[in-house]
Simulated assay, not measured.
Amino acid sequence: MVIYTKKTYENKKGYLYIPVIWREEFNIHSGLEIGIDCYQNSILVIDKSLTREYKQVISNKGFLTIPHELRERLTCNTFQIIIEQKDERIILAPK
């Protein structure tokens, strides 16, 4: 199931807060390394796959920092947060 949330990610802030409900559902906890990929310089895919281009660690409050060099490549500043439950991943798509 794909969930189109009403939440957004602002590229200027540089971090994404992953709510407890998603962290529990996807078994994401503080200290876990997460993979991030960028497609067409505008779509970010975030999941537990460590084969992705970038890797970041989840903070103790559920924050994930998007690497600065990746943020500079993005062609948009505001992204819609989409949840793909089946694949246990978060998609950030231009809004």
Score class of each variant (00 low, 15 high):
Glu69Pro: 10
Ile3Val: 08
Phe26Val: 06
Lys95Leu: 04
Trp22Ser: 02
Ile90Trp: 06
Asp37Ala: 14
Gly35Thr: 12
Leu74Cys: 10
Asn60Gln: 13
Lys55Ile: 12
Gly31Ala: 13
Glu33Thr: 14
Leu74His: 01
Ile43Gln: 02
Arg71Gly: 04
Val20Pro: 03
Gln56Lys: 13
Leu50Lys: 14
Thr51His: 12
Gly35Asp: 04
Lys61Ala: 11
Phe26Tyr: 12
Glu69Asp: 15
Tyr9Pro: 00
Phe63Ala: 09
Asp87Thr: 11
Cys76Ile: 00
Glu69Trp: 04
Asn77Arg: 10
Pro67Ile: 08
Glu33Arg: 11
Lys55Gly: 07
Arg89Met: 15
Lys95Pro: 00
Lys48Ile: 14
Tyr4Glu: 12
Ile3Phe: 06
Asn41Met: 06
Arg52Ser: 09
His29Pro: 01
Glu33Trp: 07
Gly14Glu: 08
Met1His: 09
Glu25Gln: 13
Lys55Thr: 14
Ile90Val: 14
Thr5Ala: 04
Lys95Cys: 01
Leu64Ser: 13
Lys48Thr: 15
Ile21Trp: 07
Ile28Cys: 05
Asn41Trp: 02
Thr8Ile: 13
Lys7Tyr: 14
Gly62Tyr: 11
Glu33His: 09
Thr5Lys: 03
Leu44Pro: 05
Pro19Trp: 07
Ser59Cys: 08
Gln40Gly: 09
Asn41Tyr: 02
Asn60Thr: 12
Ile81Thr: 00
Tyr9Ala: 00
Phe79Arg: 01
Ser30Trp: 13
Leu74Pro: 05
Asp37Gly: 13
His29Ala: 08
Leu32Ala: 14
Arg71Thr: 14
Gln85Ala: 07
His68Thr: 13
Cys38Ala: 12
Thr65Glu: 06
Leu70Phe: 09
Leu50Phe: 11
Tyr54Asn: 00
Phe26Gly: 03
Phe79Gln: 00
His68Glu: 13
Pro67Ser: 11
His29Met: 10
Lys13Trp: 00
Asn60Phe: 11
Glu25Pro: 01
Gln56Tyr: 02
Gly62Asp: 10
Lys86Phe: 07
Asn11Glu: 13
Tyr15Gly: 05
Thr5Met: 02
Lys12Phe: 07
Glu24Trp: 02
Lys55Pro: 05
Ile28Tyr: 10
Gly31Tyr: 09
Gln80Arg: 05
Gln40Ser: 14
Gly14Ile: 00
Phe26Ser: 03
Tyr4Ser: 07
Leu70Arg: 02
Ser30Asp: 12
Leu44Thr: 03
